[in-house]
């Protein structure tokens, strides 16, 4: 089976797993402290943002698999250092929690603007790409985006679809082969823990 066909097949065949994945994200979301519990609008925003970062191609995208909800849970629990006080920037002030940490989701909502969700997809993409470019150029006021994008990646590639359909997953390789040719069909293994931790 060619790579395209394999991936198209998997994209169609994963709806059941997908439902389970989204339900799982929701279950953890339900346990959040009420102060961190997101509004339906914020969940929708994060879902759409995630989908723009990792869109549906031959495999479902990050929004579809529930990475948006994962990001909200992760931010509430301070993954990737997000509960540490951010670098000082006046634009963060309205979004600081009592403990001095930045409410990244609230910041993103304001940073993208109230109308972002209502924009046509191409315009939404443009605005997000501009934020991404600013953050990776080192603009301090855009810096929180890097943590959000990082968590979108985590949410996606550690989901069953991202981890085992977009990439390969093999919990029990059974052998170590030190020299394997790379081909057009080669996909990274999400179960290569050394690469995940240190790559």
């Amino acid at each position: 089976m060619s790579g395209w066909n394999r991936r198209a097949f998997l994209g169609a065949a994963t709806l059941v797993a997908l439902q389970a994945a989204v339900a799982g994200g929701g279950a953890v979301l339900g346990k959040l402290d009420p102060r961190d519990a997101p509004s339906p609008r914020r969940r929708k925003l994060m879902r759409e943002v995630a989908e723009h970062v990792i869109p549906t191609t031959g495999t479902p995208g990050a929004g579809v698999v529930g990475a948006g909800d994962f990001v909200l849970v992760a931010l509430a629990h301070g993954l990737s250092g997000t509960r540490k006080p951010p670098a000082a920037d006046p634009s963060f002030a309205p979004h600081l929690r009592p403990d001095g940490s930045l409410d990244h989701a609230a910041w993103l909502e304001v940073r993208l603007g109230a109308k972002w969700l209502a924009l046509p997809p191409a315009r939404r993409h443009e605005a997000l790409a501009a934020l991404d470019a600013a953050a990776y150029k080192g603009e301090p006021a855009a810096a929180p985006w890097r943590a959000i994008k990082g968590l979108i990646l985590t949410g996606y590639y550690t989901s069953e679809i991202g981890g085992s359909k977009e990439l390969n997953y093999e919990l029990v390789p059974g052998r170590f082969d030190p020299k394997v040719p790379v081909t057009p069909e080669t996909r990274a293994y999400s179960s290569d823990w050394t690469a995940v931790d240190f790559g």
């Binding site: 191609t57 993409h125 990274a188 293994y189």
Partner: peptide
Amino acid sequence: TWTAGKRAAGIGKDYKNSLEK
């Protein structure tokens, strides 16, 4: 692997594809 994507600029289809190998 994909975790390197956290350090790289980009969003969208090409960005996703850049992380598959």
